[in-house]
Design a protein around this nucleic acid. Structure first.
Lengths: 228, 228
DNA sequence: TATTAAATTAATATTGCATTCATAGCGCAG
DNA sequence: CTGCGCTATGAATGCAATATTAATTTAATA
């Protein structure tokens, strides 16, 4: 079994704490809890979680202050911090990002959203830590994720965002076929509703720019990236 | 026509039931209904829907309890469950989350929102549980489910979907004879009405591509995959 | 806010496959 | 040898999946 990430959940409401704990546990996370900012900092130093999910409003020390202190300390500055806020506007006012937060989730909590956001953040973290693959190179094609450009036959091409992301997603695993559902999940993300013909249109645009090469249709299944 | 997902809608209020049923029907879903938790469980076992859309508050057995029982049963644990809640009450949502719900939708119901949420959840399901991608290797034949190609004598061959699925089904248990009924069950799925001569035609096509090797006829019984 | 680009949907054309059909072949029982 | 039950084969058909183009909505930028 793969080692599952540790998550520290911080909230002063016992009920919510318990429920979140239980839910995350069921997904396989190693969950720890704390009831306020002070406890959170203490716990964080001890167990070194990958991520802290923290309510903003708490007694003793609120989430914002706890976040600042965690980000200042070398031991804990690498931990991703996600806030729970009553409403999304509130977050902007409270300037959570300035305090160093990585993301926030607005209450009321939507189960799917919570899980997928946490997973997305963890994934991104891992990707950043362990992927020197920022740019992908093939014979006459280079996908430079850092500069956000594609070099094809020596020429540098600017791709619109979706096209670029679609291409680099497919190219991330050459040969492997992805269904439209998989593509929507990975390139578009969770809450988006787009008709799947949309993908076809983007594929078409990419093909135009890359002379019909690289992206192949597997009828009834999906698309794949492959060198000829 | 592509096989549309089955959705079971559970609510004790007849009006709402009808409203939802109508909206989902129009989108092409196959809609079934139940009036309470008990009926829901019963129905779920019978028709195996992809998703259950269920009110929390119901007589006889409420949604929360029904959800727990559905998630405990192996037959039904894979079904996505979405709650209808009267108001976005945080606690109820989290409780539902714990009970194993996939999402919830707050009343009053807006058909558009309902549809897009349901579609998103179904898409996610498809994306995640997409068929096992293991590849099967034999002496001079490789069936690569990930790339959706067959390698035969070093040459890479593109197979149409049905041919590919038929071949990989037979090859999943080399030597074992499958009756046409078994093949239809597994490759076509029990919903589809297809004359069984269809299988013969696909077998023929596969044989052409693989030089009459691998697939053998057992007269009066069926077909089997076997190395010579 | 006007202007332009990009993303998405909608509308239509095209193609590749799955399926059926019609017919021929094979092996076996009588 | 003949008739029956099965499978093989090739060709014809209908339709579902994709390609393509145009139109519309959304987002970005000046």
């Amino acid at each position: 079994m793969k080692k599952m990430p540790k998550i520290l959940v911080v909230d002063d409401e016992q009920d919510i704490l318990e429920l979140i704990r239980h839910a995350l546990n069921k997904e396989g996370f190693e969950v720890h809890v704390a009831a306020n900012g002070l406890q959170a900092i203490e716990q964080a130093k001890k167990i070194k979680p990958e991520l802290i999910l923290m309510d903003v409003m708490m007694p003793v020390m609120d989430g914002m202050e706890a976040c600042r202190q965690l980000k200042e300390n070398d031991e804990t500055s690498g931990i991703a911090i996600v806030f729970l806020t009553a409403r999304s506007e509130e977050f902007a006012e409270l300037a959570g990002f300035e305090a160093g937060a990585d993301d926030y989730i607005a209450k009321p909590i939507r189960p799917r959203v919570l899980l997928s956001r946490l997973k997305a953040i963890l994934r991104r973290r891992n990707a950043i830590q362990s992927a020197p693959h920022e740019t992908m190179s093939f014979s006459n094609l280079k996908i430079d994720r850092e500069r956000f450009v594609v070099e094809y036959n020596g020429k540098t091409l600017q791709f619109p965002r979706k096209e670029f992301e679609l291409l680099s997603f497919l190219a991330s695993r050459p040969g492997r076929v992805f269904s439209r559902d998989e593509i929507l999940e990975n390139v578009w993300g969770n809450e988006v509703l787009v008709v799947d013909r949309t993908i076809d249109v983007h594929v078409r645009k990419i093909r135009e720019k890359l002379d019909e090469k690289f992206i192949h249709t597997v009828k009834g299944v999906g698309y794949k990236f492959e060198l000829d």
